[in-house]
Amino acid sequence: MFKTKLFEQWYDREMLPTCAVCQQSFEPEPGFYYGAMFVSYAFSVAITFVVGFVLFNFFNDPELWVYMITLLGVVGLVWPLMYRYSRAIFLHIFGGIRFDSKYAKE
């Protein structure tokens, strides 16, 4: 889906125009991936709840600045993952992609 692997370049946002195997277009319409920001937002909320729960329950309710620094650090570290997975999830849910078994072995 993307031109480079996740860890080859820190943050490469360029996507291939089509799938190399089945020729499925990765951008069904202009501006399609604006909706992927909602999937990314859901990831961020989930991370916030998990990290906040761990900090609150295991470290005796630290100060507000500890929460903020920790959450910003964790979300900043997983941001490239969230970017790529939110686009992939959004494409598969709303892009009209259906599984075709003839491409399964390629």
Rank of each mutant, 00 (worst) to 15 (best):
L71N: 01
M15C: 02
F59T: 06
I97V: 15
F32A: 02
P80F: 14
V66Y: 10
E27Y: 09
Y33L: 07
L6R: 03
C22T: 09
S25N: 13
S40T: 07
F53W: 06
A104C: 01
E8C: 00
E8T: 05
T48G: 09
S101Q: 10
E8W: 14
G96P: 08
G73Y: 02
C19L: 12
A20E: 07
C22Y: 06
V50F: 15
D61K: 15
E14W: 08
I69K: 10
K3Q: 13
N60G: 13
Q23S: 13
F90R: 03
I47Q: 06
G95P: 03
I47M: 15
R13T: 15
S44K: 01
A46R: 02
R13N: 11
G52Y: 01
E27P: 07
V78C: 07
G35M: 04
M37P: 04
L91A: 10
Q23H: 12
H92I: 15
T4S: 10
R98Q: 14
V51W: 03
Y83K: 08
R13V: 10
E63Q: 15
S101A: 14
L81E: 12
P17M: 06
K3V: 15
S44F: 08
W65S: 13
C22L: 04
L6M: 12
G96Y: 11
S25V: 13
V74A: 02
F38G: 09
P80T: 04
T18F: 03
T70F: 07
F56G: 04
F58D: 11
M82E: 13
V50W: 14
S101Y: 01
Y85T: 15
V45W: 09
K102A: 13
Q23F: 12
I93N: 08
L55G: 02
C19G: 05
K5S: 15
L77C: 08
L71S: 00
I89L: 12
Y41V: 00
S86R: 05
V51S: 06
L77H: 05
K105P: 01
F43C: 11
T48L: 05
A88T: 02
D61P: 12
E27C: 00
F38A: 09
V21A: 09
K5V: 04
M15W: 08
